[in-house]
Design a protein around this nucleic acid. Structure first.
Lengths: 181, 181
DNA sequence: TGTACATCAGTGAACGCGCGTTCACTGATGTAC
DNA sequence: TGTACATCAGTGAACGCGCGTTCACTGATGTAC
């Protein structure tokens, strides 16, 4: 049941716009009594945390795959950024839930594999972008810069402020991701 | 009462983390029966829309003031970007509400003065940043780039993913806002 | 100046709703001897 | 092989809660004649 609940939750959050997911509603949807869920999660919060963790893991995996598909390096970094925005578009509620939840945990309290992977990808990407010597502080700034860009783009798209346009998005990303030239 | 409701709503949303604001709760807080609000707003949605509009107006005004304070131009653009992030930090729930609501309206259905001002500032900023001839398409890309950056930074800070650090934030912004060099 | 009437802001009771959670329970599955 | 017992996943009824909204109402303020 735990697996079924998470699976349904993830698909529901992929299509939904609003990340408000009710415990009762979820139970109803998978054809089980609401109380049954309490066998597998201490409370609603824990359920949502699990979903958020799964979302983060999905996002990380997607980014890694996108980067690998073009052979890594600077192109891979750019592709991983693009994948980030695509993930948000394809999983609006899950994307929101993932970030609103994960931030509420104490640092390190997160699913370590998932957050670790996202962070690592970010830094590796920055390194690939600037292959020379980079001061750690500078690397940090560039990583946050890239992260903010894709995150903001994703949010603006989810909020209906920016229309999806493949070519235009790539141009916007290029401004940051080709910066090392 | 309309003014009181909006005023209280704004201060509440400035301190709150969560933009879920109840009509009954708001009425209770300003010492009035819940039904009294229906004299001034057709329903809860209208109330929230009004608050979102006010938030957008505040944000626009703040950005304009920040830009003017350093004499406009490229510095002014950078300052307006910084003000954007500061506004989000200082009004977490209002910032969220403003963007989640405003996007749901049909384009142009928004408070025209507010959205117009934000948009205009954006384009003027890009123009100031690149004083030469810019193709409209390129200007568009640069404007969205800048917007996404500050928006993403704001969201990551609100979600507790990025710590507030004045100097660091300025460095991150500079990567984009000094790009025309 | 006084009277009749309309307008309007606000009230309190009541509606139905979905929610998260607790409770005592049932029935199936496994395990010890 | 059979019996006794513990474990465990699931059930349905019930709790209290806050919500948005409707309703018939009250009392004050303004306006017409």
């Amino acid at each position: 049941l735990r697996a079924a609940a998470l699976a349904y939750g993830l698909t529901e959050l992929a299509s939904a716009r609003d990340p408000d997911l009710g415990l009762r509603a979820l139970a109803r949807a998978i054809g089980v009594s609401a109380t049954a869920l309490y066998r597998h999660f201490p409370d609603k919060d824990a359920l949502l945390d699990a979903l958020a963790g799964a979302g983060m893991a999905q996002l990380g995996a997607l980014q890694a795959r996108a980067a690998a598909a073009v052979g890594g390096g600077r192109d891979g970094f750019m592709e991983s950024g693009f994948a980030y925005v695509r993930f948000a578009r394809d999983n609006p509620a899950l994307f929101r839930l993932t970030f609103s939840r994960a931030g509420r945990m104490a640092p390190g309290d997160d699913d370590p594999a998932a957050l670790g992977q996202a962070q690592r990808l970010l830094y590796e990407g920055v390194a690939a972008m600037m292959p020379g010597e980079i001061a750690p502080a500078k690397r940090d700034v560039m990583a946050l810069h890239a992260w903010s860009l894709v995150h903001g783009l994703a949010m603006l798209i989810l909020d209906g402020r920016v229309a999806w346009d493949d070519a235009k998005l790539r141009q916007i990303l290029a401004l940051t991701f080709d910066m090392g030239d």
